[in-house]
Design a protein around this nucleic acid. Structure first.
Length: 863
RNA sequence: GCGCCUGUGGCGGAAUGGUAGACGCUGCGGACUUAAAAUCCGUUGACCGUAGGUCGUGGGGGUUCAAGUCCCCCCAGGCGCACCA
């Protein structure tokens, strides 16, 4: 009888051996192609969650597979260690953020280690350590010098709960992305990075990122939202004022019937000041909420300033309104309304009785009118003087040309993307290395005084930034004139750290530079892969589609332009976004959420509470969350079932890009498989097997096994490369079933079994590395499997001598026939038509057509 | 409103235009056991049935010898953007 697999002991043994042999430590090696696989690094919250397990398992499969395929694989790990939870912990528990963070890192690292990941831990770093963030400060000084970083007073999104500023990307539906609190608007002096200067490049380069999900590219495209149009001036009649308006439809200029300003447009105040009802109007605009629903329902309202503006080409006058649906922070904050061809303008004009003139008329439409709604489709220009008869594209070009000629306007491009505000009024972040001097103004900290370290002795007893009320830290002397000065107390947005960490890993301990150019180039540019290079495979959650992934792309470009790296335009050549992990929810009789471990299913299918015995309601399967308590603890899973079973289950069933439902039966099934495989291998008798396979001496069953072996080698390789890990697992199980069912008829057959067993172990290694090592050793190998090459498959062994294919009659399957693999149409026809079922289905009708696709199908067309 | 994605057994999901449901989970039957657990073997799309059929990939059309797969229209769910001129 087979011995039982001691999972814990065995898994520990192999992790220790890998560690002792330093097998995952890599360096630049030009004799091999490189492969850089990276998973999004974790925030050190203290415990890993199942999402981490999924993320890092996926990465590890790729890393181990590529290693076996002969690549020099970089697979590093570190900690995204700055951020608010550390400060909250300090406030709630009085524990210093630095201590809290490093303790969390320690416990999380222990958990990650127990997963058996093939990580080069020698490159580990935490972004909260000065050894990391000092380089960020150095780069920032360069950005300042280059004009990429600048300071200006601006209205910012203020999160009243976190007491800090948020970037536009961090405001969702007018609420803070973390706190969900309504964002306030405040005026503050803030540091910005000129991401808008890179808007075009960020947009254009998306096209080449063909190993990114379309979804993410589209989201970034939407976010940048480039629009081409005309910006031009209108004179305000009877004044010297001019109003600049922006439009993407300059072709509809002759259909203009009003001008509209944003309520907070500087000219709005000037034109409406003191007029009856203006204050009330502004109040009404502000009264509307910022939620989706409010915007959806909000009626378009306007305030007539009484002023008119002169149409730059017609000389005609149109009224100037202030309107609630015009946004100050897009374009120029002023538009002209063309009700005929814009639904918003149509709504507004209808309400205020303004003329609606069609200027674009579709061809071949009887009784065309714009009385019911605006027309936004294609057509020819009408009522538009010199534009009449042109199509929209030509009319746009023509009118931009005319406006430029008369000096009233110019063709231009607008973006929704705003510059990235990077100042945060927090302690636990990278200090911004500048000093304010009364005489010299804002002075960069000289390079030799870097890093500007965070002070350790801080208190969190007052709200807002501890750096601000630290007794001494902010006091310093001006580097220029030596007078008393004060430090910048804001710190960087924590997305700063995660914007360049992918490069730091390539030279993680460099004390002088963010990264050595040569080393960065080896790991990020030396493949023959086209496009922009960067990390070969990046893996993480889709929630970072805009924020992190856009900032990291931008940062890569400015690091390149500032000479910190060379030959890389994009940080991540391949991106894979994994789905969420979900679980059933459970509520007790009082409606309180309870943990899955507290709910038990009885034999009658009814759920009860493990302790109280009262009945439990099973709720929907949703994303694991602490509030719904539908979470499972990876540490418990790893302890109970082992890393291999956890990894196997998390890769089974669901394709990685989709959500995965975590189930007890699923993890148990995986665990059973691990044990079953072990037992089978322990029972396997390979004594007498030959080194060379004597093809002629093999039984039919052995030939089938060899075919299964080579098909599986091909299938798993292709599945992993396509990120179809669920299929790779299915192939593994199918192959196992074939091996387990095989009974060798003699020594020759044993050599086929030996081949299958060896292949199986290497193939399962990326998924269940501990088990694979143990079996490899059991097969008598003295070397570690981790260094073993991926097997190659023999194309000629993939096909069998005979094949079974379906026979259709008029498209319906009626029979299956077995033919020699190389049978020609004549032979196929003979066998197919001889089938009784085929004859019956033909029902005496004449054969009209005979279709034979070798190896695939026979279709008999009868009528 | 616009854009993208998804829809296949009781469930998760397979399927270069070519035998739909691989692989697994669950269920059912059996073996082993004093009994249970574990394990192993068989079975598991629906309907009629003795053989053998009929139906079946969200719905409706179409292309094709052949459609889950391609095209058109619609329905449902999810995600993203959202008064961006």
């Amino acid at each position: 009888m087979a011995q039982r697999y001691n999972i814990k002991e065995t898994e520990n043994k192999w992790r220790r051996k890998w560690d002792e042999a330093n097998v995952f430590e890599v360096s630049e090696d030009t004799s091999k192609p490189k492969y850089y696989v990276l998973e999004m690094f974790p925030y050190p919250s203290g415990r890993i969650h199942v999402g981490h397990v999924r993320n890092y398992t996926l990465g590890d499969v790729v890393a181990r597979y590529r290693t076996a395929k002969g690549f020099n694989v970089l697979h590093p790990m570190g900690w995204d260690a700055f951020g608010l939870p550390a400060e909250n912990a300090a406030i709630e528990r009085g524990q210093h953020p630095d201590k809290w963070t490093h303790e969390n890192i320690k416990s999380m690292k222990k958990q990650l280690l127990s997963m058996g990941l093939s990580i080069d831990w020698s490159r580990e770093f935490a972004t909260c350590d000065a050894e990391y963030y000092e380089h960020e400060q150095r780069m920032f000084l360069k950005f300042l010098e280059r004009g990429i970083a600048y300071r200006k007073e601006s209205v910012v999104n203020w999160d009243p709960v976190d007491n800090t500023v948020l970037a536009n990307e961090q405001v969702i539906d007018g609420k803070g992305w973390r706190t969900n609190a309504p964002v306030e608007r405040r005026k503050l002096n803030q540091w910005f990075l000129k991401i808008t200067d890179y808007a075009d490049e960020l947009l254009d380069d998306l096209k080449g990122l063909d190993r990114w999900p379309d979804k993410v590219r589209i989201m970034q495209e939407n976010w940048i939202n480039r629009s081409v149009g005309l910006q031009f001036k209108w004179d305000v009649v009877g004044t010297d004022h001019k109003i600049e308006a922006f439009t993407t439809r300059p072709d509809t200029l002759f259909g203009a019937s009003f001008l509209a300003l944003a309520p907070d447009h500087p000219m709005a105040k000037v034109l409406a000041e003191g007029k009856d009802g203006f204050d009330a109007f502004i109040k009404e605009c502000q009264a509307h909420g910022t939620s989706e629903a409010a915007i959806e329902k909000a009626e378009k309202i306007g305030f007539d300033t009484g002023y008119k503006a002169t149409h730059p080409l017609l000389g005609r006058e149109v009224p100037i309104y202030i309107a609630n649906f015009i946004l100050m922070d897009y374009g120029t904050g002023a538009i002209f309304g063309c009700p005929g061809h814009d639904q918003r303008d149509w709504d507004f004009a209808t309400k205020y009785g303004l003329p609606i003139l069609p200027v674009v008329v579709p061809e071949d439409v009887e009784g065309f009118s714009v009385e019911e709604e605006a027309y936004t489709g294609e057509g020819k220009l009408a009522n538009s003087e010199f534009l009449n008869g042109m199509d929209i594209e030509n009319a746009k070009a023509e009118i931009i040309k005319r406006c430029e000629e008369i000096g009233y306007g110019f063709g231009t491009v607008q973006y929704r993307l705003r510059d990235w505000g990077v100042s945060r009024q927090r302690y636990w972040g990278c200090p911004i290395p500048v000093i304010y001097c009364e005489d010299c103004g804002c002075v960069p900290v000289p390079e030799d005084q870097l890093p500007v370290k965070l002070p350790e002795d801080v208190s969190f007893d007052k709200p807002s930034n501890p750096l601000e009320h630290h007794p001494t830290w902010k006091n310093c002397s001006c580097p220029k004139c030596g007078k008393d000065a004060r430090r910048e107390t804001d710190t960087f947005d924590t997305f700063f750290e995660s914007s360049w960490y992918q490069f730091r890993y390539t030279d993680a301990k460099n004390p002088d530079l963010p990264v050595d150019k040569e080393k960065a180039a080896y790991w990020t540019t030396s493949t023959s892969d086209k496009n922009y290079n960067g990390v070969d495979q990046y893996i993480g959650g889709v929630e970072h589609a805009v924020l992190h992934l856009l900032y990291a792309r931008f940062f890569t470009k400015i690091m390149r332009d500032c000479g910190f790296i060379e030959g890389v335009d994009e940080p991540f050549n391949g991106l894979f976004t994994q789905g969420m992990v979900t679980h059933e929810t459970y509520q007790d009789s009082k409606g309180k959420w309870i943990f899955p471990t507290e709910a038990v299913k009885g034999g009658d299918g009814k759920w009860t509470h493990r302790e109280t015995g009262e009945s439990v309601t099973v709720g929907p399967i949703i994303k694991m969350s602490k509030s719904k308590k539908n979470v499972i603890d990876p540490e418990e899973i790893l302890n109970t079932y082992g890393a291999d079973a956890a990894r196997l289950f998390i890769l089974s069933d669901s394709p990685p890009e989709r959500d995965l439902e975590w189930t007890e039966s699923g993890i148990e099934g995986a665990w059973r498989f691990v044990n079953k495989v072990y037992a089978s291998f322990m029972d396997m008798d390979l004594s007498g097997s030959l080194t060379d396979i004597d093809e002629s001496a093999l039984s039919d069953g052995a030939k089938d096994l060899r075919r299964a072996t080579h098909k599986t080698i091909k299938g798993i390789g292709e599945a992993i490369e396509a990120f179809a890990m669920n299929k790779a697992v299915a192939f593994i199980r199918e192959f196992y079933n074939a091996i387990n069912a095989f009974k060798p008829a003699g020594d020759a057959d044993k050599s086929a079994l030996d081949e299958a067993a060896r292949a199986f172990v290497v193939l399962i290694n990326p998924i269940c590395p501990h088990l694979a090592e143990e079996l490899w050793e059991a097969l008598g190998h003295k070397t570690m499997l981790v260094n073993e090459d991926w097997p190659s498959y023999d194309e000629s062994l993939l096909v069998s001598d005979t094949i079974t294919i379906g026979v259709q009659v008029n498209g319906k399957l009626r029979a299956t026939i077995t033919l020699p693999a190389d049978a020609d149409e004549k032979a196929a026809k003979e066998v197919a038509l001889a089938e009784e079922k085929v004859q019956r289905a033909m029902d005496g009708k004449a054969l009209r057509k005979f279709i034979y696709v070798p190896g695939r199908i026979v279709n008999v067309v009868a009528a």
